[in-house]
């Protein structure tokens, strides 16, 4: 039995390196999933704005699936389930790669896109029709009106929920351990197994997650304050 509180074994040597690698992979996973989610969210919003009934139903179904099925199940479906639908030769080819990272990016990104798309849609709906009319009356077409007038305001409106959901995405990266991605939570459990410093291991991970989450929220607050200055009354 190991007695006493000692962070030493975790913050030095090979275990520290393992934790750091895990943290870096967490950030990488978060970054790629975020980029995928945000691009896809814009696409979903634009599709929904076409007011095509079929397209609207497809987007609604997409959002319903990703918001109502546990993210963990979605991850496992992608990593364990989807490859089995591929031809055998492709499966064998895939087996040569470590696909857990890429499937984690896909699953987390697709899931978060549903949240981001709803955030953006709510932000866009809050913009008065007069803004569209004014931009169109100045000779802007749909694309210019969206790009210079509507989307900038929509993104500002949805900023608070986009930040919240970015933090949610960051926390959800820990689920990727279930399909073998050695991110921070996975690494923490490894370190805990080797060192038996259970409390210390999870404490370090906790501080790490907390620090990044707070930084994300801080960045969000900074951006929001810049926008508020621009709209001071």
């Amino acid at each position: 039995m190991i007695k006493g509180f000692d962070l030493g074994p975790i913050l030095t040597g090979e275990y520290a390196a393992l934790m750091l690698q895990g943290a870096l992979l967490t950030l990488k996973l978060m970054l790629f999933a975020w980029l995928l989610a945000m691009s896809l969210a814009f696409l979903l919003v634009v599709v929904r704005l076409t007011h095509n009934k079929l397209a609207e139903h497809l987007v609604a179904a997409y959002v319903a699936y990703h918001r109502n099925v546990p993210t963990l199940v979605q991850l496992m479906l992608w990593y364990f389930g989807v490859p089995t639908l591929l031809p055998e030769s492709t499966q064998l080819w895939l087996a040569d790669f470590s696909t857990e990272f890429i499937f984690a990016v896909i699953a987390l990104g697709l899931c978060q896109a549903a949240y981001f798309a709803e955030d953006l849609r709510a932000g866009l709906r809050a913009i008065p029709d007069g803004q569209t009319e004014a931009s169109r009356a100045l000779g802007m077409g749909y694309v210019r009106s969206m790009r210079y007038v509507i989307l900038p305001q929509g993104v500002r409106n949805s900023l608070p929920s986009l930040i919240n959901h970015t933090v949610l995405l960051f926390k959800n990266t820990s689920l990727a351990m279930a399909i073998g991605v050695v991110e921070l939570t996975y690494a923490t459990r490894e370190v805990e197994n080797y060192t038996f410093r259970t409390f210390e291991s999870y404490l370090v991970a906790t501080v790490g997650y907390l620090a990044v989450s707070l930084v994300l929220m801080g960045i969000g607050a900074l951006i929001a304050r810049r926008f508020d200055l621009a709209r001071a009354r």
Binding site: P128, G130, Q131, E133, A134, S135, A137, V149, P152, Q153, R156, F227, A230, R231
Partner: peptide, 9 residues
């Protein structure tokens, strides 16, 4: 326009 519709951002 009656309601100005300046771009607030």
């Amino acid at each position: 326009f009656q309601s100005f519709n300046l771009f607030p951002h």
